[in-house]
Nucleic acid binder design. Structure first.
Lengths: 175, 175
DNA sequence: GTGGACATGTAATCTGTTACATGATTCA
DNA sequence: TGAATCATGTAACAGATTACATGTCCAC
């Protein structure tokens, strides 16, 4: 899975600009994939050259013009090839957890501050996801719903486990 | 956080070879970080050139020789710098979840097969983590314990949410 | 006139993986 | 003799990010 597959997927339901794609990725998608403009625009150009999408310049009023890309039949076939390819394992990389792993080399109060901070981020993330769930709920496909439910339950489990861990750490601190 | 930081961290408690490091990463670490030999060996050479670690050739009986690397004072200082640097956000990339997101473009039975498969992998992963928890439990630092507890509770939450999702999907299939 | 949303793009760089290449030693 | 484990390394490539560069249009 790479940016090409994801972009083709996003175009399956209608034309989008690079800017639109970035915003889609940031909202719905951000939990399990992301890409920067430095990836999106070159990928769109590449996909157009390969005939998987076509470009249309759209003149807008009150805004700069934009390039709206539409998927072609070849593009749909290509996306279908991706969907049938072997699934790649999840990739997860966590700086916070790495620091927790090496926690014995850091002062306890610094570590506690770090964990509290991370906990707050997890709470914010949970709120973001539940808001999104509420907002998108009616229009979501069954598997999209599973997707966001996994995100939500994962967030909850991190919050719970981390809170308990912090409390335990604080107690060892008192000694 | 990159391979340099992680390798220095692993050397904080004693000398290791590249091969040892790979195995450490695969066992304890694999939940939140990983690296290939193609990263480990060049990184070790780079760290040695920079004076953060020193190499010692160890002649073994019944096995090929190996290079054991030891962290220097400069290396410890460098690792400490990492621990005090701003925390980078988690990175998560999931092919399965991307496919779930685009589930409407895939036949239901194919999707179900994919999800069952993923569920099994999640169960295997949970078993691996709980075994590791049992095995390493006495020697773990408090924050290491939090680390693995988060891994375990996340695995459990994925299994539960996914199982329920699969059941729901099956019902919509019958209609 | 300035900040912010909208909009597109490139060059340099980073960081890593994969595939290849080699070789010792043990055990069945 | 061949597979498995131990052990090290490199070259080609992939895939992305960051920083830079540019510009429109609106509202304050």
């Amino acid at each position: 899975m790479n940016s090409q597959d994801v972009i083709l997927g996003l175009l399956m339901k209608g034309g989008l600009s690079g800017y639109d794609i970035k915003h889609r990725l940031e909202s719905i998608f951000s939990y399990f994939y992301n890409a920067s403009y430095g990836t999106i625009y070159p990928t769109l150009n590449k996909l157009e050259k390969e005939g998987f999408i076509t470009k249309m310049s759209v003149i807008q009023e009150g805004r700069p013009n934009k390039n709206v890309y539409t998927i072609t039949e070849e593009g749909r076939a290509q996306f279908s090839t991706y969907l049938k390819s072997p699934i790649e394992p999840n990739e997860f990389k966590s700086d916070v957890m790495t620091r927790m792993f090496f926690g014995e080399f850091l002062e306890k109060d610094v570590m506690l501050g770090m964990l509290e901070d991370h906990l707050q981020k997890a709470r914010d993330n949970l709120n973001r996801l539940t808001d999104m769930y509420q907002a998108c709920m009616p229009g979501m496909s069954p598997t999209q719903e599973i997707c966001i439910q996994i995100g939500i339950s994962n967030s909850k489990s991190v919050i719970e486990t981390l809170s308990q861990g912090i409390e335990r750490l604080k107690k060892t601190n008192e000694k």
